[in-house]
Simulated assay, not measured.
Amino acid sequence: MDLDISYIEPLLDEWLEELQLIIKVQEKLIKSTDEFYMPYIAVPIPIVNAIYKITEYLHLERDIRYITIHLYDKFMCNYFWEMYKKTDGTQSSWSQICKSISSHSILYLMSCLQLAYKMNSHLNNLKIPQVLGILQRLDKKSVFKTIGFRMPLYTPLNCIEILLAATGLKDTPRMQELTIDLLDLFYLQRKKLYSHLQCLIQGYIARTIEEKRSLMALESNVLFLGASVILCGTFFLYVKSETIDVIAIKLSQLVDIKVNNIWDMANILLTMAIQE
C-alpha cells in the first residue's frame, strides 16, 4: 500500500471514519456474551515466529505476515468456539478437540498464508512448490467460511501508513522503516506490552470480566497500535519534545484514544526496543 499524499489526502478522513466503525464492531464482538473472541489468543510467540520465518523464506511482503496473523487468530478463535458449542462439556471430549486442532494447526496456518497472499497480490498465486507441497492438503474454503467470509481490509501496517500520511510524517527519513521494525517487535512482545500497559492504566492486573474485556478491546484496536508505534518511532529520530507533544495530540485526535494511553504504550515499546 503505497500512499501518495497528493492523491489520498481527501480520502484520509473517510478511511479513518471507516476504520473507527470496524473497530467499534470488533469491540462489540469482544464484549458480547454469545460469541468468543480474544484478540491474539491464537498467535503466541512461536506462531508469530513461524509466520515471520515462512514469509521471509518466501520473500513475501511484510503486509502479508500481518494479514496472516489476523486470519489465523480469527480462524482459530471461531473454530474453537464452534467446536466448544458441540462438546458435551467433559474433559475428555475437550481434550480430544484440542488435540485434533493442534495436529492440523500448521495446515490452517499455511491456508491463512495463502489467503493473505491472494488478498495482497493481483499478479501471481502462491505456488504449491514454494511451501513444500503443504498446501495440497489444505481446505481454504473451510478456513474462509470459519472466519465469516471476511478478509481484513486494513492491517496494522496499513493503519500506520494512513496515520503517517495524516500526520505529515510519511516522508520523514527512516520513519517507515522504523515503524515496520517496531511493529514486528510488537507482535513478538505483545503479551508483555499489554500486561505493562494494563498496570499503567489501571494500576493493577484486570480482575473483573468487564476490566478484562475493556483491555481486550484496546488490544484489538489497530489504530491505537498504529498511533503508539508512530509515536515511538519519533523517539528514535531525535525530534524536539515540543514537536512530539504535538504529534501525540494529533494522533490522539485521529484515533479517538486518550493521549496518555498512546504515550504509555509508546514508552513501553521504546523500552523493549532498546533492550532488544
Score class of each variant (00 low, 15 high):
residue 133 G to M: 06
residue 85 K to N: 10
residue 84 Y to S: 09
residue 202 Q to E: 11
residue 257 I to L: 05
residue 108 Y to P: 00
residue 45 I to E: 11
residue 52 Y to M: 12
residue 130 Q to W: 11
residue 17 E to F: 08
residue 157 L to P: 04
residue 266 A to H: 01
residue 42 A to V: 02
residue 32 S to I: 03
residue 200 L to D: 09
residue 55 T to P: 04
residue 210 E to L: 12
residue 7 Y to W: 07
residue 248 A to E: 07
residue 217 A to W: 03
residue 88 D to S: 10
residue 44 P to W: 01
residue 113 L to G: 04
residue 51 I to Q: 08
residue 53 K to F: 10
residue 131 V to A: 09
residue 227 A to P: 08
residue 183 L to D: 06
residue 272 M to D: 06
residue 196 H to G: 02
residue 253 Q to D: 13
residue 133 G to C: 06
residue 176 Q to G: 03
residue 240 K to D: 15
residue 136 Q to P: 00
residue 67 I to Q: 11
residue 89 G to Q: 05
residue 44 P to V: 02
residue 16 L to M: 10
residue 45 I to R: 15
residue 229 V to L: 13
residue 32 S to V: 01
residue 68 T to A: 06
residue 98 C to M: 13
residue 194 Y to E: 09
residue 170 K to Q: 15
residue 262 I to P: 04
residue 251 L to I: 05
residue 229 V to E: 04
residue 216 M to W: 14
residue 57 Y to C: 10
residue 18 E to Q: 08
residue 238 Y to K: 15
residue 60 L to R: 02
residue 24 K to E: 15
residue 128 I to S: 11
residue 162 I to A: 06
residue 230 I to V: 10
residue 179 T to S: 10
residue 66 Y to Q: 06
residue 219 E to N: 11
residue 199 C to F: 12
residue 183 L to G: 04
residue 61 E to Q: 15
residue 266 A to V: 00
residue 238 Y to S: 15
residue 67 I to T: 12
residue 101 I to G: 02
residue 100 S to P: 00
residue 68 T to C: 12
residue 254 L to S: 08
residue 195 S to K: 12
residue 108 Y to S: 08
residue 250 K to F: 02
residue 129 P to E: 12
residue 137 R to K: 14
residue 207 R to K: 14
residue 206 A to Y: 07
residue 182 L to D: 05
residue 238 Y to E: 15
residue 109 L to Q: 08
residue 140 K to W: 09
residue 1 M to V: 10
residue 30 I to W: 06
residue 162 I to M: 07
residue 19 L to H: 02
residue 165 A to M: 01
residue 118 K to E: 09
residue 202 Q to M: 14
residue 64 I to D: 04
residue 78 N to F: 02
residue 4 D to S: 08
residue 202 Q to V: 06
residue 272 M to E: 12
residue 235 F to T: 03
residue 80 F to L: 14
residue 120 N to M: 07
residue 243 T to E: 14
residue 214 S to H: 10
residue 165 A to D: 02
residue 260 N to Q: 14
residue 129 P to K: 11
residue 92 S to E: 15
residue 138 L to G: 13
residue 133 G to D: 09
residue 101 I to E: 05
residue 241 S to M: 05
